[in-house]
Design a binder for these strands. Structure first.
Lengths: 169, 169
DNA sequence: TCTTGACCTGTTATGATATTACATACATAG
DNA sequence: CTATGTATGTAATATCATAACAGGTCAAGA
């Protein structure tokens, strides 16, 4: 299993926006997913695995129905729960994330590493990058603590323009 | 028009979770809303004003259809766009916020003051508190800048337990 | 005054997202 | 082999959101 230094997500915070060997990038994530689920006993079944592969194809967020259409075309069930269940599993296992702002899902770029992700969503090309949010998360927790609030889950997302689309505007 | 020191939102970051004179709190927000819209020329029409009053009744987030039902019962239109348009106006004017995690809306507790809000959402009682997110937002911007990403809008939300519900668990 | 144009409200229709409930299949521990 | 838990498939429905168009109001300018 690769260590942290091999993790493309960690090595390049702007990974999603930069040209890179995406085949390697997604292959790596898939391998990690297999290792992780094997380690915890979670079952990465064919639908689930395929759903993850679909999310890994691009650094974008896909709606459940987009994923569903792809799965259905490949012979899996064609009703919404098929997609929602697979996606829910991936999110629970930390293999994918839900982007609240888009009601959509994106593959995690460094599964298995404890991380507090923030998402950078380009409104022009719809690329979604996963950035480190530990600083933001800490601030948020501190503010919450002031109000006596106990944080369980956080949503930290930014909408804007990625470096590529900025250039074109 | 009251200055910052009269603002209940600023005075108490845990306002929503604490017992307080809510009649004064919501009345105050409504007054501010009137002053603000008058100042900018925006039209706080009857539906819009009523929608804001409905949101101000509680420190919770209401779905568009909840607001719609209330409006319809009072003689306004009963089709979705009626609610969505009023809510959209309120959000644009900074009089309400959209809570992405809940697909719902909540009244702003200190309209008119430039602020970067974070939301603390209690999963037990569904109270939504507006906290200061300038620290978190700064961290997020810094991280985004590292990737060359230009932030336009942020979503910063925490789901967890409010002080009251924590005690009961 | 009349007209124009901007904006607001209402309604119909539809689209997009998500869940509940139940039936069937499949793996594996006993 | 069979009981149990878990995964998958499907039907039906609930929930959230928008497009498109019609009619109303109001104020600015011809």
């Amino acid at each position: 299993m690769p260590d942290t230094h091999d993790c493309p997500g960690c090595a390049a915070p702007d990974l999603a926006f930069a040209a890179h060997d995406h085949a390697h990038c997604s292959h790596d994530a898939l391998e990690r997913a297999e290792a992780l689920t094997a380690a915890t006993g979670a079952r990465l079944t064919p639908v689930r695995r395929r759903a993850l592969e679909i999310l890994l194809e691009e650094h974008k967020a896909l709606g459940a129905y987009d994923v569903l259409a792809r799965l259905a075309a490949e012979g899996f069930g064609n009703q919404p729960p098929v997609a929602y269940r697979a996606l829910e599993f991936l999110v629970e296992q930390g293999l994918a994330h839900r982007i609240q702002r888009l009601n959509a899902f994106t593959a995690c770029v460094h599964p298995g590493e404890d991380h507090a992700p923030a998402f950078l969503i380009c409104r022009a090309c719809h690329t979604v990058a996963e950035a480190e949010a530990s600083g933001a998360r800490q601030s948020l927790e501190a503010e919450a603590a002031r109000a006596g609030f106990q944080v369980e889950r956080t949503t930290i997302e930014a909408l804007g323009l990625c470096p590529n689309c900025r250039g074109q505007a």
